[in-house]
Design a protein around this nucleic acid. Structure first.
Length: 499
RNA sequence: GACCCCAUCGUCUAGCGGUUAGGACACUGGCCUUUCACGCCGGCAACACGGGUUCGAUCCCCGUUGGGGUCGCCA
């Protein structure tokens, strides 16, 4: 028997701010690799050309570095199985796709998106079957070649067995079975020539000699597609270990709408990386009965994948804060904490940005403290009276805050220009003067009626922090009932859709 | 809706056939203290339900219920 090196990977797609869920998967993968003297690999899954952005890749890397989860192989780091950015591996995927087609395991499909959308609609209505009807599965290779040469658009689909079932093993859950019937012929290459996740992940995990796939539970249903590809290629699948999903308070999958989820937000909010790691490690794993505070090193020492518990843990910010406080009090001498504090927000760069927008209204240097205090705290002191809009009720004000919140959620890159556009749009649609619309937001952001310029302030605070403060403000105003929220959302979708 | 996964205090969890079901957060009573916080001592609070298996089930099996996820040319 050959002992295989333990190689784990983190494979985020750079389509948004790095998520604490990513940190969660990263931590377990990292710890497992270190525990076994193996390797931890970072691979950027940027096969979605529309949504992948280099700046997101950068912030993923920054966030992981901040957390101290160092990888052995990765995009800039290199390694013997590179490149580690999927967009740079296109020829590898193409070669494998060709192989599958040549061997009869995959075929070109010429169906239009419109037709597929219709099929899907029908399936949903009748409740039976799923998705694609395999119309192109039996087109002869000659005909297919002809149509491709004639310039017709096509994707490549893999052939999924029509009957029987797929049985595979999950390290934490044991045997899992799924009927092939419930899976339709997956697209493995898109019309733009890029592979889909399913193909790319299998090819890369094999070529990069990944031994354990540690990722979120949301992937469990696609494992059969992956093991089928392993089979088609004649490869041995890795060990699968699907982690439970982090949850919101209401138990739904942790999401940006209901919780701050970006690692960056916790950093801005003054959470220490070691506390954040300890906390997410605690969700699903424990050191011993009575010791909740532990370091990554201690975790490496004692970690076993099979000890991970399966219930989807609710991400409880209160407990994180308690733990963070414990670290501040117990792990640092004053000098050391001072360094951390400076690194966090008391540095020239940060000060300069803030000074840029506050110096115009300063009369004495001593104005600085009070004027800029909202840049150095999490929550800001609020009163309902201060937030209330002119001639509006609590509920009406809440509705407007919510509409702006939804607009802000749609912003890709959170800069003052885009923030301004969002506000402008809401002001126009609702026929409110900009100055009236923005008034409660000054209070929500700073706790003061008179404050630094709104859009600049929000840009410096960042998307998550700004949105969080709007949510606190709504809360202070009494919030909206579920019913009211639904009604408002409908109205919002009708009146504010960009089409 | 179909399929897949899951199920101990409100929350994170310990437990792996016999326990007064343990710890932590939150909440709460008290002590400490110039306030607050910290710290310390205490309190509240859980095995979803119904069948089996067993001398005995929180623990094993089945069903129900509940929760979650997936059903994209997104990952």
């Amino acid at each position: 028997m050959t002992v295989q090196e333990v190689r784990t990977r983190l494979a985020p797609s750079p389509t948004g701010d790095p998520h604490v869920g990513t940190a969660y998967q990263a931590l377990f993968g990292y710890v497992w690799a270190r525990k076994n003297n193996g390797s931890f690999i970072l691979r950027i899954e940027d096969t979605d050309r529309e949504r992948s952005k280099p700046e997101y890749e950068k912030s993923i890397i920054d966030s992981l570095r901040w957390l101290g989860l160092e990888w052995d192989e990765g995009p800039e780091t290199g390694g013997q199985f590179g490149p580690y950015r999927q967009s740079e591996r296109l020829d590898i995927y193409q070669e494998h796709i060709n192989r599958l087609v040549a061997e009869g395991y995959a075929y070109p499909c010429f169906c239009t998106k419109e037709r597929l959308a219709e099929l899907r609609k029908e399936c949903q209505k009748s409740g039976a079957g799923s998705g694609y009807d395999r119309k192109c599965r039996n087109i002869s290779p000659e005909e297919a070649t002809g149509r491709i040469e004639a310039g017709e658009n096509f994707v490549v689909r893999m052939k999924v067995p029509l009957e029987g079932k797929c049985v595979f093993e999950d390290l934490l859950r044991g045997k899992i079975e799924k009927d092939w019937e419930s899976i339709d012929d997956q697209v493995i290459m898109k019309a733009d020539g890029y592979p889909t996740y399913h193909l790319a992940v299998v090819v890369d995990d094999h070529l990069m000699k990944i031994s354990h796939i540690i990722r979120g539970e949301e992937w469990i249903n696609s494992v059969p597609k992956h093991v089928l590809l392993y089979q088609y290629f004649g490869w041995e699948p890795p060990v699968y270990c699907h982690l439970p999903l982090l949850r919101n308070k209401d138990k739904s999958k942790l999401s940006k709408r209901k919780n701050p989820v970006s690692i960056e937000w916790y950093r801005k909010n003054g959470i220490l990386p070691e506390a954040l790691l300890n906390f997410i490690g605690m969700l699903g794993w424990h050191l011993s009965d009575d010791k909740e505070k532990f370091s990554v090193e201690e975790m490496i020492e004692n970690f076993r994948l099979e000890d991970i518990s399966l219930g989807g843990p609710v991400f409880d910010p209160d407990k994180l804060l308690w733990l963070n406080g414990k670290y501040i009090r117990e792990n640092f001498k004053t000098e050391q904490l001072l360094d951390r504090l400076v690194e966090w927000g008391l540095n020239r760069d940060h000060f300069k940005k803030i000074l840029e927008i506050s110096k115009g209204r300063m009369n004495a240097l001593s104005d600085w403290g009070e004027m800029t205090s909202h840049f150095f705290c999490g929550k800001v002191p609020l009163t309902a009276e201060g937030l209330l809009m002119k001639d509006m009720s609590h509920t009406q004000t809440c509705e407007i805050l919510q509409i702006v919140l939804w607009e802000l959620e749609g912003i890709q890159s959170f800069c003052k220009e885009r923030i301004y556009e969002s506000f402008k749009k809401v002001a126009d649609k609702l026929d409110i003067k900009m100055k009236h619309l923005t008034q409660p937001f000054y209070v929500a952001m700073s706790g003061k009626k008179v404050s630094t310029p709104l859009f600049d302030t929000m840009e410096i605070l960042g998307s998550d922090m700004s949105r969080m403060r709007i949510r606190y403000a709504m809360n202070e105003l009494g919030g909206l009932s579920k019913k009211a929220m639904k009604k408002l959302e409908k109205r919002y979708q009708e009146e504010f859709s960009n089409n």
